[in-house]
């Protein structure tokens, strides 16, 4: 784990209020794994003091990586104002990422809304390993289905759901999981999205006895495991999302 001053290379708006931010930072890019995150000091405003955690969105090479964020509060508003060549104080790579077991042949990824963020780097890894990839993607509206065209190209099949029904199934992405599992016969499921969605993924995957890895989200303090702010309840008591997660085996979590 490194605390570094990283250069911003590029900021790109990919949907209304949603941005990618590309960093030049060898220390983190060369070591980061899908599912890990960085802890970002979003400017010098002392009115809000905590760092903000963002999952590693894409690893572009040994020197560069991206995060994906939606503007929701003070921290992300600051990030949205950044320009290339500005410098940010970041710590990373942090936490335990996704595990890709040897011999994995087929997998389903479930992405809910901004939950796509850590899954894109995982998708690239899965694609490299030539594992059969199926994607379930859900969002509020059609415009919020990020990277939909890319995902459609890279996956064997993509199942879509929107809450307003503007494309795909009208409803929640997890409504499609039963059918998808029967059709795709995955060895493993990976999921990131709202906690209700993760809970549903955990239930359905255990029904089919398929291992599932879920990326949890909590408000964080230190991000390095010391302050015990970000705990979630597991079968072995409270665990820290920052260092024991953020990726957990779905059966481990007490929902």
């Amino acid at each position: 784990m490194f605390q570094v001053k990283a250069h911003v290379l590029l900021k790109e708006q990919i949907a209304p209020g949603i941005y990618t931010l590309r960093f030049f930072c060898r220390e983190i890019a060369s070591r980061a794994k899908p599912g890990q995150f960085i802890h970002v000091k979003c400017g010098e405003n002392r009115n809000f003091i905590l760092r903000r955690p963002f999952s590693i969105h894409r690893i572009l090479g040994p020197d560069t990586f991206e995060i994906l964020f939606k503007v929701v509060g003070k921290g992300t508003s600051c990030l949205a104002q950044l320009h290339p060549h500005e410098i940010l104080d970041i710590i990373g790579p942090m936490g335990n990422g996704f595990t890709i077991d040897d011999g994995l042949k087929s997998t389903i990824l479930v992405a809910g809304g901004m939950g796509i963020a850590p899954l894109v780097s995982l998708i690239e890894e899965i694609d490299l390993q030539r594992i059969r990839l199926y994607i379930l993607q859900g969002a509020a509206t059609r415009e919020r289905l990020l990277y939909f065209m890319y995902l459609k190209r890279i996956a064997r099949k993509i199942f879509l759901a929107t809450e307003d029904g503007s494309i795909g199934h009208k409803g929640l992405v997890t409504d499609l999981l039963h059918v998808a599992i029967k059709e795709c016969k995955p060895d493993c499921i990976y999921a990131c999205g709202p906690e209700e969605m993760l809970k549903e993924v955990a239930e359905i995957s255990s029904e089919f006895e398929i291992p599932a890895q879920v990326s949890m989200e909590r408000r964080m303090g230190c991000g390095i495991g010391a302050c015990l702010s970000c705990v979630c309840e597991t079968r072995d008591g409270y665990k820290r999302v920052c260092v024991d997660g953020p990726v957990f085996d779905a059966t481990e979590i007490v929902w």
């Binding site: 002392r46 009115n47 809000f48 003091i49 905590l50 909590r218 408000r219 303090g221 302050c227 015990l228 702010s229 970000c230 705990v231 979630c232 309840e233 409270y238």
Partner: peptide, 16 residues
């Protein structure tokens, strides 16, 4: 310890 959420941010501070 206490159940989560255990911390929130406040103006120039945190509540834990």
């Amino acid at each position: 310890g206490n159940p989560p959420p255990r911390m929130c941010e406040t103006a120039s501070g945190i509540l834990n």
